[in-house]
Simulated scan of single mutants.
Amino acid sequence: MKKMKIYFNRWFSVAFHYMNAIRNNEDGVQFEIYGTHPDPRHMSLQGCDHAEVEPALQGLEYVEWCVEFCRRHQIDVFIPRLRMFHISKHVHLFDAIGTKVIVCRDTELLEKLMEKDKFYESVAETGIMTVPAYHVVNNAADFKKAYEDLTGRGLRVCFKPTNSEGGLGFRIIDNNRNPLQELFGHVTKWISFDEAYKVLSSQETFQDVMVMELLEGFEYSIDCLSDAEGNLLAAVPRRKAGGRLRLLDDKPELLEIAKRVAQTYRIPYNFNIQMKYSGDTPKLLEINPRMSGGLHVTCLSGVNFPYLAVKLALGGKVAPQTPEYGILASHIEQPMKMRTAAETAKTL
């Protein structure tokens, strides 16, 4: 039986687990996995059957390089992370060579997801879930007004660039800190209003920043699988439960939100909704139209999210899944012998 060829471009280290999940699928389908990354010793490449060093390219030039890679190796399914928006914009180039791409083809939606304020506006219009109180600012005077408005409502305040990924640029305003103690301690995400205002005042304008209410309840990452028609096939809310512990939790209100997101935005394959509670109300942080960094933990629910996305891309039928909830999970490091740089990044 011919092995299906899967290609991951530059991904997080946890792609190592996604590759193994696809290999160890319940249908017994055989796969050959290809990967590229600028770092020939990157952990994700250790999960590949074939690996290659990725060039530093931008925009369409990078997309064309990926197309040529897929054509040269007769890739059946491409699972991108880097330059996902540009790949979606030019996905017809992959269609032309017969490579299926696990990506959301709605480029207008992808642009909104990249700019959190625009997506918050979209969500507020639909009413499918609650967003935090926020202001978008790009100068120090407006930053101060936003801070005063939110604190005047009795809210604690945080801020973050509108287009950052993960925790980059995220700061919490705390005016009761001890700067000297912090100087000799760990690098911190806390900052006083005066310190933030002073830094921001050094520029007449700066990139758009969301000044938001600080949500202080449990934070959930909801891993989802959906088809292109907006049918939610699986959803598993996952939260930190202290230290390295993670709880796969049965939260009906979060499962209902996942269903509404799937129906409203029709993000195909894997996507992830991040929410945090304010009292009893879950509020949106962001949505990632891709596999999350903790998806391998969520797969302990019995749902093979990476493989089922590949199965959908190849035209297979995937029935609604029945995840196991209430699982308390963790992880330990395991030593492994790395392949040498030459072995890992061999020319194919």
Rank of each mutant, 00 (worst) to 15 (best):
L45S: 02
M19N: 06
R72M: 06
H50R: 08
H73C: 11
N24Y: 08
D27R: 14
I6M: 07
W11H: 14
A56H: 14
A15D: 01
H50T: 05
E54S: 06
R23A: 04
E68N: 09
F16E: 13
L60W: 00
A51E: 00
E52S: 10
I33K: 10
N20F: 15
A51M: 03
P40Y: 00
E32Q: 11
F16N: 07
E64C: 09
W65E: 02
F12H: 15
C48Y: 07
L45A: 02
H42I: 04
G28R: 06
E32F: 02
N25H: 10
L60Y: 04
V67T: 09
Y62M: 05
Q58D: 06
A51D: 00
C66T: 09
V29K: 05
E64Q: 08
C66R: 01
R72N: 15
H73R: 15
Y62Q: 03
F12K: 15
E61M: 09
R23P: 03
G28A: 08
G35T: 03
F31G: 07
C70L: 10
R10N: 15
N20Q: 12
W65Q: 01
I33A: 06
I22G: 12
S44H: 04
R10S: 14
Q46T: 01
V63R: 02
T36N: 02
N20E: 14
A15Q: 00
R41A: 01
E64V: 12
N20T: 12
M43Y: 14
F16A: 10
E52V: 10
A51F: 04
E61Q: 13
V53A: 11
V67S: 11
F8Q: 04
P40A: 02
L60H: 09
D27S: 07
H42T: 05
I22M: 12
E68F: 06
Q46E: 05
S44P: 01
F69N: 01
M43G: 05
V67N: 12
V63I: 03
C70P: 10
A21H: 15
L60I: 04
Y18W: 05
F8V: 13
E26I: 13
D27F: 13
G47N: 04
E54C: 03
R71G: 09
R10P: 04
E26C: 08
V67M: 07
E52Q: 10
M43S: 09
V67G: 04
N9C: 10
C66K: 00
A21E: 09
R72A: 14
C70W: 13
C48F: 08
A51P: 00
E68P: 02
N24F: 11
W11G: 11
H73G: 15
H37Y: 09
D39N: 12
V14L: 12
N25W: 12
C70A: 13
R23V: 01
D27W: 14
D27I: 07
F69Q: 05
E61L: 07
A56M: 11
C70R: 06
G35I: 02
G28H: 06
W11V: 11
E32R: 08
F69H: 12
H73E: 14
E68G: 03
E68I: 00
V29N: 12
D49S: 07
E26A: 14
A15M: 02
N20W: 10
N9M: 05
E32D: 06
H17W: 11
N24P: 03
P55I: 00
G59L: 02
